[in-house]
């Protein structure tokens, strides 16, 4: 299971309406992008971390396993700002204000990522996808997302099994064998996906599938208190940022 998926299902906020969590998580993301990076993005980052590890009940280990991927992209992006290509300093030279700009970018992107992950870590796909249709997203698009979500786990499982079977027959002992096995694995996964899709359609037809994947939307209500508290937090963070705002350098 993906760490983010596991976290969403075990979160204390799992039963909350997705709108509650969207206001808070996406609100933090907007603040991280729009407020001055110091101290705005830093405050957002700390707040999101406290909320995730505290009230939302996301285990730190799971958070780290899922967060390190987007964080890797943030760091990679920031590193490129440290250097300048061409110019008087040579082909590659340290960029003027590079550390400052890299720090700002890292703060902004890592805080914004945590804001998005706050929503993702507390909202299982089963709560979100059926509601997207009500929110105006075209039903066929949501159906594709729903089936892709389910099929991706089946495909991963299938790939793991084939890989294990190949390894057991020494299919990964040499580089040539590995490439040959990977080719076979890709082809098998492709064919199996088509076969699985055809069989799934047959299985669904038996339950009256007519082109639309209708499922029950989990019962939950938008909490006025939670939303109000979220908005209050966002406003407080913005106000605090403007009060404390100082140049980073």
């Amino acid at each position: 299971m993906l760490p983010i998926d596991a976290a969403a299902h075990s979160s204390r906020w799992r039963r909350r309406h997705p709108v509650d969590k969207a206001v808070l998580g996406l609100g933090l993301t907007v603040l991280a992008i729009s407020l001055p990076p110091w101290p705005g993005a830093a405050l957002v980052l700390v707040s999101a971390l406290v909320l995730l590890l505290g009230p939302a009940g996301v285990p730190a280990g799971r958070l780290w396993r899922a967060y390190r991927v987007p964080l890797g992209f943030c760091v990679t992006g920031a590193l490129t700002l440290l250097v300048r290509v061409g110019g008087p300093g040579g082909f590659v030279s340290p960029a003027p204000d590079g550390p400052l700009r890299a720090g700002e970018l890292l703060l902004r992107t890592s805080a914004a990522s945590l804001g998005v992950l706050l929503f993702a870590f507390t909202t299982p796909m089963s709560d979100l996808l059926p509601r997207l249709v009500r929110a105006g997203v075209p039903a066929p698009l949501v159906d594709v997302a729903l089936v892709t979500y389910r099929m991706s786990f089946l495909l991963l499982d299938s790939v793991r099994r084939v890989h294990r079977a190949q390894a057991a027959r020494l299919g990964h002992t040499t580089r040539a064998a590995t490439w040959r096995s990977l080719g076979g694995l890709g082809a098998t996964a492709f064919v199996r996906s088509f076969d699985r899709a055809a069989r799934l359609q047959t299985g669904l037809a038996g339950r009256g599938y007519d082109g639309a994947l209708r499922v029950l939307v989990p019962e939950a209500r938008v909490s006025a208190r939670f939303t109000a508290a979220s908005v209050a937090l966002l406003v407080a963070l913005a106000a605090l940022t403007f009060v404390l705002e100082r140049p980073l350098s």
């Binding site: 299982p124 796909m125 089963s126 996808l129 059926p130 729903l146 089936v147 979500y149 389910r150 089946l154 699985r196 069989r199 799934l200 047959t202 299985g203 669904l204 038996g206 339950r207 009256g208 599938y209 007519d210 994947l213 209708r214 499922v215 029950l216 989990p218």
Partner: peptide, 24 residues
Amino acid sequence: VQDPDDQLFAASVGQDVSFGPLNL
């Protein structure tokens, strides 16, 4: 059907079971 994965498509158990009745 024999293989349950040929039938289950939804993200949660309850949602998958609700599919048929909703189609009625």
